[in-house]
Design a protein around this nucleic acid. Structure first.
Lengths: 224, 224
DNA sequence: GAAAGAAGTGAACACTAGTTCATGACGAGT
DNA sequence: ACTCGTCATGAACTAGTGTTCACTTCTTTC
């Protein structure tokens, strides 16, 4: 009497799992991490609270997966943008711009994923998430350095600093709050990208050119 | 029968208040925000839990004052360092270096004050704290811009970004963990300051000079 | 030194979510 | 159709802390 999950059931289980994660994501995007509570998330996903625990051992696991999930999407977007750029410096500019546009487009979610207080310990998954993103930026900086476009430097520290600058100035508590208007949003993205490029050693004039180039394709994302 | 607090009592009350705040600070420096709990803090300050509530209406108020307190010290240190510098660019370099050295010297406390999750809402006081520090940096950037040392720019955004870069790369989860060795610590401070100066538009070569100058007096602080 | 008010105490309370589990519904195999 | 596992449910449980408050101790005033 071997019970076997039929294909249909497997699919339904996977769908539920995704639904729960999606509900958690919505909750976070809506009301920040504080809103990611088991009961409300369960309701949003049309399941009972107990059901959540059939898919995730604990709230910490749920949130960790949420972070990993969002992070994965982000990383993919960065790679796509950077790979489409014509050269190493452009790729770096595109990467930074992508991060900036993304966090601005979903500020609450970004804040939740990146830094908002949670009652459970998710440092490990946040760490992993940042490491991934920072690693990608670091890679692009490295390429630009080897191409002779940037001075030699500690690429890991530089990548971390760049991300810190972007995050703090766009989603942190001091972020300007009038960024809903697309024009201002673009200005902010440009300004931050410019700062980032100069930080790693791109000359002012050249950096300004790269920024303008990078923001053009990114504008599409703002619309999305 | 008008009861009047005698001078002695007033003094004792003030001392208790400070003791509680100091205990909270120690707890935070020791074990992060999670360790700032009423009962342990009270014990550390040699009072009962209930007594804390005679001085602070709630835990949120206690932590808010703690944040304000640390922030005040930090701001004073930044001003001192910047004012002692010979010129606008040096002042900016000194300010950034000071922040870097401070957060590195008390990383756990810095993390607790800046971003560590707390169970009560202290966003307002964290916001105020950052505003103060960022305001000071912004001021210094502004002076340098007006002196013609830096290109015109959005000083508020730049200040925020600089702080973000410093914080993220030195106390954030991705911060290198081998910074106990003074040599490495100095390297990290220099690297980050260099990034910051270039970000606001100082030329690479000139920035390197400023960094070296700025780190010299700051070395004293590391020892302290 | 006695009365009255302020300060201090710490055990008990309250509150808030995360988590569990007895129970019922559903689907798979014979 | 029947049996037996798996899945789903949601009310009850749990745990950890901030907060309260009846009571004690100390200070001031007369």
């Amino acid at each position: 009497m071997v019970y076997r999950r039929t294909q249909q059931v497997v699919k339904r289980l996977a769908a539920r799992r995704s639904a729960i994660l999606a509900a958690a994501r919505e909750a976070a995007a809506d009301g920040g991490m504080a809103a990611v509570q088991i009961a409300p998330v369960a309701t949003r996903a049309n399941v009972a609270a107990g059901t959540v625990y059939r898919y995730f051992p604990s709230k910490a696991d749920l949130i960790s997966e949420l972070i990993a999930d969002v992070s994965r999407d982000e990383l993919a977007a960065i790679r796509r943008a950077a790979d489409a750029a014509p050269g190493p410096s452009s790729a770096l500019a595109a990467a930074v711009t992508t991060v900036a546009v993304h966090v601005l487009s979903h500020r609450k979610l970004a804040w939740a994923i990146l830094a908002e207080p949670v009652d459970v310990d998710v440092t490990a998954s946040r760490l992993a998430s940042r490491r991934e993103i920072a690693g990608e930026i670091e890679l692009r900086i490295g390429v630009a350095v080897r191409a002779g476009h940037l001075p030699a430097q500690d690429t890991a520290l530089a990548a971390t600093a760049l991300l810190g600058a972007v995050h703090e100035s766009l989603v942190g508590p001091l972020a300007p709050d009038n960024l809903d208007d697309p024009g201002r949003l673009r200005d902010a993205v440009q300004t931050v990208t410019l700062l980032a490029l100069r930080a790693v050693g791109v000359m002012d004039a050249r950096a300004r050119g790269l920024v303008v180039q990078a923001v053009m394709p990114a504008r599409i994302l703002v619309g999305a």
